[in-house]
Amino acid sequence: MKILVLNGPNLNMLGNREPDIYGRDSLEQLEKNLHELCQQEKVEVDLFQSNYEGALLDELHNATKKGYAGIIMNPGAFTHYSIALRDGIAAIDLPVIEVHISNVHAREEFRSKSVTAPVSIGQITGLGLYGYELALLALKQYIQGRG
């Protein structure tokens, strides 16, 4: 089973960007954590980060061709207004779990609205980088249950 992890804008700044909100671990640490979990779970994972909406859309559109069984996605700020990403998720026949490092519902009002969550199978927020690990376990179970 192959899982794609997509990270949107500013997530390349993890560890440096507002550490009181996002923590001190880097994107590289997230990758290391997920690869360790994947070895235990016998799952393959690829991570992709971009600050560009179109690049994230291209990855979504090509995910099936590349053999992914599901996607974990942190759309970053695109969560709140990107109809293009929302439609990109809806256009593919793969389960997507939306992840947010901070609790977006406990922050600024505009962050509580997600246009991508309604086309995702679930959303995990506020658990730091551990949310990605939970998403991986949940996605694996979901995919196995469908098969």
Rank of each mutant, 00 (worst) to 15 (best):
N62H: 14
E59P: 00
L56G: 00
R111I: 13
M13Y: 06
S120E: 03
K66S: 14
R111G: 10
A84H: 03
Y130D: 10
L27R: 11
N12K: 04
I3V: 13
M13D: 05
G126F: 07
A90R: 06
L94V: 12
R146D: 08
R146T: 01
D20V: 14
C38R: 00
E133L: 03
S112V: 12
L127R: 01
I3T: 00
A106K: 10
A63S: 12
V43I: 08
L4V: 07
T125H: 13
V5W: 09
Y81G: 05
I89R: 02
I21W: 13
Q39N: 06
A69M: 06
M13L: 15
Y130M: 15
I3R: 07
Y22W: 07
D46W: 05
N10F: 15
L30Q: 09
A90H: 04
G76A: 14
I83A: 06
H61P: 04
P118F: 03
N103V: 14
Y142D: 00
E44W: 03
D58K: 03
D93N: 14
I83E: 11
F78P: 01
L27W: 08
Y68R: 07
C38F: 05
R86E: 08
A90M: 03
L47S: 15
L139N: 08
S82Y: 15
E59F: 01
D93L: 04
G23S: 13
H61W: 07
M73C: 12
Y52K: 10
G54Q: 10
Q123N: 04
E36C: 06
L14P: 10
H100G: 02
Q141D: 04
G70K: 06
V45F: 01
I3K: 00
L137Y: 01
G126D: 12
L60P: 00
A106L: 14
T116F: 02
I101R: 07
Y142R: 05
R86Q: 09
V119Q: 11
G122Y: 07
G23D: 07
P118D: 02
P75S: 15
Y52P: 07
T125D: 03
N16G: 13
G147H: 09
H35R: 04
N62P: 05
D25P: 09
I21F: 09
V96P: 04
F48E: 12
P95D: 00
G54H: 05
K65H: 12
E41S: 11
T125W: 06
D58L: 03
P118C: 00
F78L: 15
